[in-house]
């Protein structure tokens, strides 16, 4: 059997050859990483979202506090920041923060194309790039499958021309999974982004196994279902065995559950707080729950 690089890394990521490649890598003090199946590049398993949190407009104080969050994110070894033209001023604020903190070189720049008209894709992408103030994106995704055929063509062409490193597509809130599955089967994708957290687990059935099989990296959005899961559990006691997986808080419990899934390459919690960004990056450390422990986590949550 001949394996190309994508399939090989896909297998490795799936844990098929764990003796050859440990599932997680990590430099001293840095978050754990997983490999992007299509390239083998290592990516920290906790990134940073920007929906709502970075949409602060021209409020100088809020912009500077966003920059502090970003600085803490990079200081803690984070890399992927995700945004979208749908997020109001978030892209422009990210650009401001990258300039202010001088961290453009650290970022794994991840954004989206979001317009119902395929012809408008390139123009929108160029505006987005200018807002970030970077030379090129690492990853661009078709947002919520909007006009996905035309946009996938655009993104693939950009990748071929060396103007983009990875191509992806996103969905959220459990929508349009059948269509996404079809696209994953039929198209050459580096990444998919979807909603995965301890209560939204539908993707475990088909999409995550398919991503493993096809060697597609998976970004988990809404790891806390926006703050809903944190609010739901904050008055409950963490189980005693939370220590065994290194979870000191509910946020870490929830995040470790997500990033420990073998098919998940990284999760992208959003936050406005420096202490939260640190807490989230600290989740990306050993020990992570194994399959049995993850089942126990789900059972525990169900009891509450």
């Amino acid at each position: 059997m001949q394996l190309n690089r994508r399939q090989l890394f896909g297998l490795l990521a799936a844990g098929g050859l764990t003796a050859l490649a440990p599932r997680f890598g990590r430099a001293q003090g840095a978050p754990l990483t997983k490999r992007i199946p299509s390239s083998g590049e290592a990516l920290p398993i906790v990134g940073l979202g920007s929906w709502i949190t970075f949409n602060v407009g021209d409020d100088p104080e809020a912009r500077d506090s966003s920059a502090e969050v970003m600085q803490a994110f990079f200081d803690g070894g984070g890399r992927m920041i995700d945004s979208s033209p749908m997020y109001g001023s978030a892209q422009e604020v990210i650009g401001y923060c990258l300039r202010k903190t001088g961290t453009s070189a650290n970022v794994f720049a991840t954004d989206k194309v979001w317009t119902g008209n395929g012809g408008e894709g390139p123009g929108q992408i160029e505006r987005t790039r200018a807002l970030w103030g970077i030379d090129r994106f690492d990853l661009l995704q078709v947002h919520n499958l909007v006009a996905w055929e035309a946009h996938l063509d655009t993104l693939s062409a950009m990748k071929n021309d060396g103007k983009l490193r990875y191509v992806g597509i996103t969905t959220s809130h459990g929508r349009r999974h059948n269509e996404l599955e079809k696209i994953m089967h039929e198209h050459d994708l580096d990444f998919v982004q979807l909603t995965y957290n301890i209560v939204d687990r539908e993707v475990e059935d088909r999409l995550l196994p398919l991503a493993q099989e096809k060697g597609i990296a998976v970004i988990a959005n809404r790891p806390f279902r926006r703050k809903e899961l944190i609010h739901r559990f904050e008055d409950e006691k963490l189980p005693e065995w939370a220590d065994d997986i290194g979870a000191a808080s509910w946020a870490q419990f929830l995040l470790k559950f997500v990033i420990a899934h073998p098919a998940i390459t990284c999760a992208i919690p959003a936050t406005t707080r420096v202490d939260h960004v640190r807490e989230n990056l600290t989740s990306a450390r050993e020990p992570l729950p194994d399959e049995e422990m993850r089942r126990r986590m789900v059972a525990y949550i169900r009891e509450l």
Binding site: W51, I52, N55, V56, G57, D59, A62, H173
Partner: peptide, 19 residues
């Protein structure tokens, strides 16, 4: 139906009142 109304809100209350 997969959305709650709050999923459509794209800014925080704090940002709104700061405006």
């Amino acid at each position: 139906w997969a959305y709650q109304p709050s999923d459509l809100l794209m800014f925080s209350p704090q940002t709104y009142y700061r405006l």
